[in-house]
């Protein structure tokens, strides 16, 4: 492999897209999770839960726009292949995101007696978006297969990803709230974790079994040794988090951010595993990142902009999280 721009740029953009997807999954994951947890929350808790994500969700969702945008602009060939293959799930994702996004605003502005229906739309939208993302992940992992088995596997991953998002949402609530809601969130986190483990296990097993190429990437010497930390660390983190949930109730706020960070770390490890499995393909077994990439000149131009803008935007995002740091208070337009 020679190190010239036509080789490097698609690689860089695959990395950027990976980062965008990962950041999206972690950040919007807790937004969607809180929407899913609306199913278990009491009416008086919903306002606090919304307040915990209010100032952030717009920017969080923008990472999805960036991820899809990068797929669109850097790998136009793959964009078409993946999205036409996933036509209906993508559609369901969009309907979910539309419902979630507008319900967030409508619920605060409609007359009080109509609020419940927008709360339901918020729950339904969040759940639908999470399920659709999970289904897409499942089908993508199987190399965009069709058929009953792929469909069933997609559904399994859908449920598990929704649960994983619920776990993220619960972890975020533990950080952002206090009192009764915080205690409830601990219980939510525990139930959701079971499904999260199941889902990550299912994807980890299915990926190598679905493709001999991926099997060969993982189960050979000496790569197996270098890769072993990924599953081992994930398992340890899960175990540690599970034990932590039993201590959270007594220790109060000392550890309140740790569940969220642990989950984000687990997501990152899982993501790295997937990246290793699929590299260098952007469409599994069909298109490599180089085959799908845009012209070098166009990629270069985008990279220049990205190099300037991304650090600024990350800084601005951190600033916003600091401004709205601490426990979620009533969200006020002031």
């Amino acid at each position: 492999m020679t190190l010239d721009w036509p080789t490097l740029l698609p690689l860089i953009f695959a990395g950027l897209m990976g980062i965008a997807i990962l950041v999206y999954v972690v950040l919007d994951g807790f937004d969607l999770g809180i929407g899913i947890l609306f199913a278990a929350a009491g009416d008086h808790e919903k306002d606090t839960m919304i307040a915990a994500i209010g100032p952030f969700w717009d920017a969080n969702e923008t990472w999805l726009v960036l991820a899809v945008g990068l797929l669109l602009v850097a790998f136009p060939m793959a964009h078409g292949v993946i999205l036409t293959a996933l036509y209906i799930p993508v559609f369901l994702l969009l309907v979910g995101l539309i419902l979630r996004g507008v319900a967030f605003d409508f619920r605060a502005k409609v007359p009080t007696h109509r609020k419940a229906r927008w709360d339901f739309a918020f729950l339904a939208g969040s759940l639908l978006a999470a399920l659709a993302q999970g289904y897409m992940l499942g089908v993508y992992v199987l190399g965009l297969q069709t058929g009953l088995a792929a469909f069933a596997f997609g559904l399994l991953v859908a449920v598990c990803l929704a649960a994983a998002y619920a776990a993220m949402g619960a972890a975020w609530l533990i950080y952002k709230t206090e009192g009764e809601l915080q205690q409830k969130a601990i219980l939510w986190l525990r139930s959701a974790l079971v499904f999260t483990v199941l889902g990550m296990g299912a994807v980890s097993l299915a990926t190598p079994l679905a493709s001999p190429r991926i099997f060969a990437r993982w189960f050979v010497f000496p790569e197996m040794l270098y890769l072993a930390p990924l599953p081992i660390l994930s398992a340890l983190l899960f175990l540690w988090l599970w034990r932590l949930t039993f201590r959270l109730a007594e220790t109060g706020d000392t550890h309140s951010l740790k569940p969220f960070l642990a989950l984000a770390a687990i997501f990152t490890l899982g993501f790295l595993g997937l990246a290793w499995s699929f590299y260098p393909f952007v469409v599994p077994e069909r298109l490599t990142i180089w085959q799908a990439a845009s012209a070098t000149g166009s990629l270069g131009l985008i990279l220049v902009g990205t190099a300037f803008v991304l650090p600024v935007m990350i800084g601005a995002t951190i600033y916003v999280y600091r401004v709205f740091g601490g426990k979620a208070a009533d969200l006020r337009y002031d």
Partner: peptide, 26 residues
Amino acid sequence: GPLLAYEVLTAFFLEAVFLGIMLFGF
């Protein structure tokens, strides 16, 4: 591609990030 990318990078992030402060930060 680049035109859409610049839209997301410069404009959309700017709006989305500072919207939180504009709406709830007074």
